[in-house]
């Protein structure tokens, strides 16, 4: 083997070994959970950190929004259709904030309430005119399909 070929062989085998090790480490990393947000069920199960700030994700429960008359304070309930979590927020809410909307709230637990310092609305990737959305909802009601409003 010529020196250049030998060198090339060494380089290629080193790269392959490195990629193999990296793939192993990546597989190991993927088994760990990287939590970006917690659902109410996870909070109920005690997975969320005590007293620390975290993100709560879920859907705003229907008929749960209570706006204060004299301030910007809003109370509502976030649900993942299994567990529910009362949320308290003071401030201006985004336009997309409404019942049945997926939201991401940042804040911390105070007792059994989640006090949010930021509420962001998450919209899904579906785009359609209002009539079509209504028709789909009607069809879902007719077939008694549990509404999947999560995004």
């Amino acid at each position: 083997m010529t020196p250049t070929r030998k060198r090339r062989l060494i380089v290629v085998s080193l790269v392959l070994v490195a990629v193999a090790i990296a793939a192993g480490l990546t597989a190991l990393a993927l088994q760990q959970n990287m939590t970006y947000l917690y659902s109410p069920s996870e909070v109920d199960a005690g997975h969320a950190p005590e007293g620390a700030r975290f993100r709560l994700g879920g859907v705003v429960l229907e008929d749960s929004i209570a706006r204060s008359t004299d301030s910007l304070k809003v109370d509502f309930v976030v649900t993942d259709r299994f567990h529910q979590m009362p949320v308290e927020y003071t401030g201006i809410l985004p336009d997309l904030f409404r019942e049945g909307q997926s939201i991401v709230a940042t804040g911390a637990m105070q007792g059994d309430r989640f006090v949010a310092t930021e509420v962001l609305a998450k919209h899904d990737e579906t785009y359609m005119p209002k009539e079509v959305a209504d028709a789909i909802d009607k069809a879902k009601d007719a077939h008694r399909v549990p509404g999947d409003t999560g995004g």
Binding site: E125, T126, Y127, V132
Partner: peptide, 16 residues
């Protein structure tokens, strides 16, 4: 926060 891809090359796109 950012939604998923709307237009997909494979499978149906979720846009009318």
């Amino acid at each position: 926060l950012h939604q998923g891809s709307t237009v997909r090359l494979f499978g149906p796109s979720s846009i009318v």
